[in-house]
Design a binder for these strands. Structure first.
Lengths: 189, 189
DNA sequence: TGCCCTTTCCTAAAAATGTTAGGCAAGCCG
DNA sequence: CGGCTTGCCTAACATTTTTAGGAAAGGGCA
């Protein structure tokens, strides 16, 4: 019987695909084994356990998201940068809902510190450098933007804004406008 | 052997407590049976299945939350109402993290339509009546507030803002200030 | 080429959860 | 006080997670 060619990397990538297809909490070692047409126990040579799989998918998602954000931010500043950054989250979540959910997994402190989460924080600060904020306002702003982005994306993903007017895209642009105005201390147009 | 006196209601309430203690996704029919010192199968006379239990806990949480919000809003308007409403969410989530997580459970459309979720939406609109918004701006604002509240609370609950200055309460007040200013179309102070 | 050794994948088994079917008896109602 | 409903039980099976130990695939080396 030929070998299946399992590696941790392939398993994690397949796990991420599975998450996008059936939802992150439906990702299970058994389902993954089925996908590779292999017995469940075989995965345990490549993964510590079920939690390990989920953590690795989360780390993958954080990396992908950070890479996209870095691309999007290149050469942009101010409102442009804000919108580009925000869109990265929203688009990623819509393209990869399972991965996005994975990225929200609570990691233990050391894992988190070694993850791409750190880059996310740095990029958020970079975006805010385009506005004239001093500490502690910049931190407040980091938290506000994090809340809005995460909150909006997760409500949208949960179907909260579908089937009702105005459509979600319009609201999204309205919000980005107001946030931009808020950050520069001006009323919106 | 005396009977345990199980009812759907008692089970759901105990399930909600369990959720607050160990986390909503650790709520399991087995754990609930243990808590009543009863065999697992016995619960199936009172609950359809595991999903049913979770849905009922979610509905309970939505009710409680809506009741609190209604209390908080009585006699308030403008920034006061906004802050009171926002605080209800945040406080509830901190007192009852498991129930709050339950309240975020995705319900199927009919269940959602019959739930206290409807009251939440109405109250949000009521708060916004204190600001001078016309459609479609009011809808944009509903979505913005929903995003910020949910996003902030869920990041705070995940521990995102602990162990770093300034403390969360300060940021929360800053955010409410800016949102109030944003909604009335003025720059913040 | 042929042998060895590492690694990969397997079988087997145990524990936990979810779920269904059918049985006995508790305790209300007449 | 006897009957009937209903509450809780036993029994059984499926699924998932996890560990222990075995067999063979296939690369490295003579």
């Amino acid at each position: 019987m030929p070998r299946a060619g399992l590696t941790t990397d392939r398993l994690v990538r397949a796990g991420a695909e599975l998450a996008d297809e059936v939802g992150f909490d439906q990702v299970t070692v058994s389902a993954l084994a089925r996908r590779f047409d292999v017995k469940v126990a075989s995965l345990y040579s490549h993964l510590e356990n079920s939690q390990d799989l989920k953590t690795r998918i989360a780390l993958l998602a954080l990396e992908e998201l950070a890479d996209r954000a870095a691309d999007a931010l290149a050469g942009r500043a101010g409102r442009d940068a804000l919108a580009a950054f925000a869109d990265v989250y929203r688009d990623y979540a819509r393209e990869h809902p399972g991965r996005y959910a994975a990225a929200r997994l609570r990691l233990d402190p050391e894992t988190a510190a070694a993850s791409a989460g750190v880059r996310h924080a740095q990029m958020m600060r970079a975006v805010l450098r385009g506005y004239d904020l001093t500490e502690p306002e910049q931190t407040h702003a980091v938290r506000l933007l994090g809340s809005v982005f995460h909150g909006y994306v997760s409500l949208e993903l949960a179907g909260g804004f579908s089937h009702s007017a105005p459509d979600s895209q319009e609201t999204w642009e309205w919000i980005l406008d107001r946030l931009d105005a808020l950050l520069r201390g001006r009323p919106a147009t």
